[in-house]
Every structure is written in structure tokens, then in C-alpha cells.
Design a protein around this nucleic acid. Sequence first.
DNA 1: TGGCTTTGTTCGATATGGCGAACATAGTTT
DNA 2: AAACTATGTTCGCCATATCGAACAAAGCCA
Lengths: 182, 182
Amino acid sequence: MTPAQLIARSILRERNRLGISLTALAQKADIAKSTLSQLEAGKGNPSIETLWNIANALGVQFSTLFEMPDDTSKLVRVEDGKGIQSDMSDYTTLLLDKCPSGRMRDIYRVTLSKGAPRMAEPHPNGTSEHAMVISGRVRVGTQDAPEVLNQGDYYRFPADVPHMYEALSDTALMVFVMESPA
Amino acid sequence: MTPAQLIARSILRERNRLGISLTALAQKADIAKSTLSQLEAGKGNPSIETLWNIANALGVQFSTLFEMPDDTSKLVRVEDGKGIQSDMSDYTTLLLDKCPSGRMRDIYRVTLSKGAPRMAEPHPNGTSEHAMVISGRVRVGTQDAPEVLNQGDYYRFPADVPHMYEALSDTALMVFVMESPA
DNA sequence: TGGCTTTGTTCGATATGGCGAACATAGTTT
DNA sequence: AAACTATGTTCGCCATATCGAACAAAGCCA
């Protein structure tokens, strides 16, 4: 995958997401539409200034233009990976998830009390969330397919669709990593 | 901060980290050293191909070249941020740490048993770690100034220096986010 | 149908990014 | 000291990324 092709797909993808025309984007980015046309065709070797303008016009972080498409949900239970013990018997480590390059991850701590599920609107396209339960019992995930997590469980799910958090115990404490394509 | 200046600093920073000369880097990246010289001077408007070559030669992710410099350790106790409660009284959220753009974050789960502290060699320069305790009681951090964490505590510390993990309870479960400048 | 707008592509002209040689400066070796 | 190597900077030339206009294609309205 050459850089030019990668960028071509990204620009096209983001432009379609905004639903604006090539002409309009070129205008907004203050570049010639011929230039943009070539870039979207995967030809050429743009300067960063050009890309910078495009990223701004698209309203995305610069690095977004270099993203690869990706993945889906992933669930890891407390009991999973018990076997992956290091030679030192007092120490086990388990890689929950590897960060796709160029993505942004913010870390949150969330406290939930028992009650009605908390619904969340979709985050910007490409966002996903990582949930790790510290105490209690919660149901989290996309609105149509939430998962029940117990203490120590880890769950990654897409957050660019409607999703929810619900405490099943009186109170629950969890760590969230919000991952956005930027 | 113009893109050119940002890149200039990044290239210089990474090159110094590797301890190689401008000439050597230019050679490795297969670009003219005059070009590289101008870029490091903050002048110019390089093409992505040029930057791509430089990033490869530096052995870093492309997005690394667009990073801002940053920060130090940060500790958040369970009881911290109790007041930051949302209007829905059953829901509180606390931003533990915001991800500097273009950094890579890998998420680990770690199980520790009581015993001798586990020493860890320095990770690559710029790496830091985020620790969140799910159960038990641990001492983690840089070798000279570790912190004791209880359930729910969060701690970020630099990991490009010698550091350590030690369970103070019979067993401890924690989540690690390893953050590398890439 | 004909004209009008909007779509994205192709083309020659031009501005400029990249290259390589020549340059200056500092450090090493003999 | 002189000769040699490695540092990074400055210069003119050439390749090319960008531009603007002209172009073809597809909707849209009368």
C-alpha cells in the first residue's frame, strides 16, 4: 500500500462521510479541484501543505488521512489468558488490544449506580471504546448487542453507533479508553 | 505552529534520539541532504513521499512527525474527582488522561502475586505507562519513586527509565496502557 | 427538446520542491 | 602546522506538483 493510495482512500472516505462534492471540498480547502481529483485517483505526491488544507477542510486531524480501515468488537474475560503465564510464576500479562497507529486514545474512569441504562449517542465515525471493569457488574456495548461484564473483564466495541452502559450491581467502577481516529 | 515547523522539530528530535548525523539520515532516507537541511530549518513544504522516506529511515510511524512535545507523571486516586458528577446522579465520569495525538497505546492486563518486586528495563525513549488497579494493592512506578496504588487508583509514569511492579497483597489485577511515541 | 447547473477529468503553463555540486566550519589525524 | 574527514548550509538546474481553463458527462428544470 503506497502512501498515495492510502491517502486517496482516506480523502474519498471522509469526503463521502461529509457528503460534499469534490468541487466543494477543493474550494473549501483552497486548492485546485484538478489537484484534488488527481489525489483521489491515487496519483501524485502531494505536499503536506496541500494535505493540511484538505484535512482542515474535512474537519479531521491530519493523521486521519493515513489511517487504515479496521476491525470490530473484542471481548476478553477474566479467566481468558490464564495460561499465558510468564516464567516468573508471580507475574502474568495479557495484551488486551494493540493500538492501530495514528489513533487517539483517551482514558476515562466511570462510576455507575444501579438504574436505568445510560444510552449514548454515536461518537464520530471510527470511534470505539474499551471498557475494563474494576468492580461490580455492568452491561455495556452497542445498543443491539450489549455484553455483561464482571470484575476484570475487558470489552472493546464500536462507539460510532448508539451504545449503552448499565450497572447491574448497586455500584460499578470501570475504566474506559475512548479511541478516536485521530 | 505551522506544519513545517512542527515537522522540523520532530525530525530533529527523532534524529537526535538516534544520534545520527543529518548526512547519514539523508543517505538512509535516500533523499538529498540539502532537502533535509531545509526541512530541519523549518523552511519548505515537503511532499509526503519525502516525509515517508524520512519516517522509515528514522524507524518511526509516519504520524510521529506530527507530534507535539509533552508531559510527566500523573496520579489519580479513587477518591479524586468524586465531585465531578454528571446531572444524572447515577453516573460519574473522570478523564484520567488525554492522549497526545499520534501516540500509540497498547492495553494490557497484568496479574501479580506477592513477592519480590519485578524490575523492568527502560522502554524506548518517550514511552510511558498507565496503570489502573482492578483488585489488590500494588507498588508501581519509576524505580526511584514508586507509588502505592489501591483498587481503582490510576497512575501514569514515564517508562523510558528503569521501573517496577510489586504486589503488596497476595494477588493483584491491573490494567496497563503502554504508550509509545509512535 | 434545449439550455442550465453540477459533476469530475484532462491539459498546457507556471511556480516550486528536490537534487547534486560547491561551499563553509569544525574536528581528527599525521 | 597541513591534510583529511565529517559536519551542515547555500546555490543553480531540473523535475513535477499545483493551478486555471477548457473539457466531457450527467442531472435538472423549462
